[in-house]
């Protein structure tokens, strides 16, 4: 058991089952699913209140999701800390500027990666609030409740993600699902 604490990687089934138990505990103690995208919105709302208090306070969306440090907000700093502890215990913490997977295809240029990834982050934030949740809140928390809305959102997440990834990196012929289709044409 103790080795698990230091192992860099667990079976995805073990990590997943743990997340399922954690979601159950959140429904019990806090009566809601764990989601992440709202915390970024709350952070934006807090910044907005610093710069333009009246305008931010008048916005309908910030009345629905009050920009305060609460349960929903604390999830995201918690995830940073939790991942830091996990990476620290297994000795896998490392500062990384450009993701190696990206660098292999597009080179190690930080400005290029920054522009692409910032656009990605903006779309992710806009889309998650439009859909009413992200891969945590809809993808796990909502699907747990057999929510049709969450299943629709999850389909959108993956359809969009698969199309963009294939466009960026090309079809990895011979690997995974593509390997089942035979070799490159």
């Amino acid at each position: 058991m103790l080795e698990l604490l230091f192992a860099p990687r667990w079976s995805p089934y073990l990590a997943g089952a743990g997340i399922g138990l954690l979601m159950t505990l959140a429904f019990l103690l806090s009566n809601r699913p764990i989601g992440c995208s709202t915390a970024y919105l709350k952070a934006r709302g807090m910044l907005g209140r610093l710069v333009a208090k009246e305008r931010t306070g008048a916005m309908e969306y910030y009345r629905r999701f009050a920009p305060t440090v609460d349960w929903q907000f604390m999830i995201v700093p918690g995830v940073v800390i939790g991942a830091f502890i996990a990476a620290g215990l297994s000795g896998t913490f490392a500062l990384e500027l450009v993701p190696p997977f990206w660098a292999e295809r597009f080179g190690g240029s930080f400005p290029l990666r920054w522009v692409a990834a910032l656009a990605g982050g903006i779309l992710l934030g806009f889309g998650s609030r439009w859909a009413g949740g992200c891969t945590s809140g809809h993808g796990i928390g909502g699907n747990i409740q057999l929510s049709i809305a969450s299943m629709l959102a999850s389909a959108g997440f993956f359809i969009g993600g698969i199309l963009v990834s294939l466009a960026l990196f090309g079809i990895p012929w011979g690997q995974g699902v593509w390997g089942l289709l035979g070799g490159a044409p």
């Binding site: 995830v79 997977f101 982050g121 992710l124 889309g127 809305a149 959102a153 969009g160």
Partner: peptide, 25 residues
């Protein structure tokens, strides 16, 4: 709502290679 918003999310998911929770991770 969910399909349209989900597809926009998906575009960002593919460009960034992370989602809101795993960004924090």
């Amino acid at each position: 709502t969910q399909l349209a918003g989900g597809l926009v999310f998906g575009l960002g998911f593919g460009l960034l290679g992370l989602c809101p929770g795993t960004v924090a991770g």
